[in-house]
Design a protein around this nucleic acid. Structure first.
Ligand code: MN
Ligand code: MN
Ligand code: ZN
Ligand code: ZN
Lengths: 153, 153
DNA sequence: AGTGAGATTTAGAACTATTCCAATGATATA
DNA sequence: TATATCATTGGAATAGTTCTAAATCTCACT
């Protein structure tokens, strides 16, 4: 787990370099924050968390860095209704369950088989680059706290 | 087809009455506009279309009426990324294919069997009130213009 | 037909999340 | 060390939507 965090900055540096971008303290900090507490935070929430360690950072930079991480395929942007964009470091194929009671987001693993079945509903000529599955409802507390999907990548 | 339009205002009046609401010219006009051209218009687009027949209507009323129609389960609000809310009169279970090239939205029928399979990925304790499936990609013009899903309800 | 309560519409202000902008600061390279 | 480029910053601007308060309409009841 410590290793994962250490490695993450190397992964980040590599991905940034691949895109001709620099590894900055802000980018590293934001990336590690998103990895650390994988609760699909909004930009504002990331801002609040990062400011504890890096008080001078600006909200604009948080938006810039998150967008950069998305471009580098290290983080995914996810949307619920018209709410603020949330950021997810789980890169495996998964669905999102939005608990209407608590407002929390839960990852739900999707098998390649199911994804294939879903894609199969598309008529010929439709070429889907991405498939998104979103649930909305209630998750009973007893089970929701136990559920955990495997880490990203 | 003419019948469908005539009946629609009765359906509307009934649904509104069920919710203790009144049938107004604005609500009728907006509902018929959304039914007439089922291309998932935004509030702005509905506003533009409705103004041709009802020049004095306000954008606030368009938002109000669309929200009312959603509450009455006559129209569904759908979202893509952080774009403006779009409105869909197709009440059957279906997915949305968002063509990135043209920006158009296509309905894709979903069978109850597939929906059941998708729900089956949820761990025990997760109770999904809604399931949403969204594709993003490109639809080749040749086939996309031919594809049509059955009318709503 | 007239009145009043409540529903509806309206214009514009306010709001939220995000993006844009221009200035400043940091970094890599020559 | 100079220079070009990249990155960050604070604040202004933007887009979509919601809110507010006043005007208008509708309906039930007299
Ligand atoms: Mn946000
Ligand atoms: Mn709109
Ligand atoms: Zn996720
Ligand atoms: Zn639709």
């Amino acid at each position: 787990m410590q290793q994962t965090l250490e490695l993450s900055s190397e992964v980040l540096a590599q991905r940034l370099a691949d895109s001709g971008l620099r590894a900055t303290p802000q980018r590293e900090m934001i990336y590690e924050m998103v990895l650390k507490k994988r609760d699909h935070p909004t930009a504002d929430e990331v801002y609040a968390r990062v400011r504890a360690d890096m008080p001078g950072i600006s909200l604009a930079t948080v938006y810039n860095c998150l967008e950069t991480l998305v471009q580098c395929d290290l983080v995914r942007a996810v949307h619920f209704e018209r709410g603020p964009t949330r950021y997810c470091p789980n890169l495996r194929p998964h669905a999102h369950f939005h608990d209407e009671q608590s407002g929390t987001i839960h990852d739900v693993n999707l098998t390649p088989e199911l994804l294939a079945q879903i894609r199969a509903v598309l008529p010929p000529g439709y070429d889907a680059r991405t498939v998104e599955v979103t649930f909305r409802g209630k998750a009973s507390p007893l089970t929701s706290s136990e559920h955990r999907v495997a880490g990203s990548e």
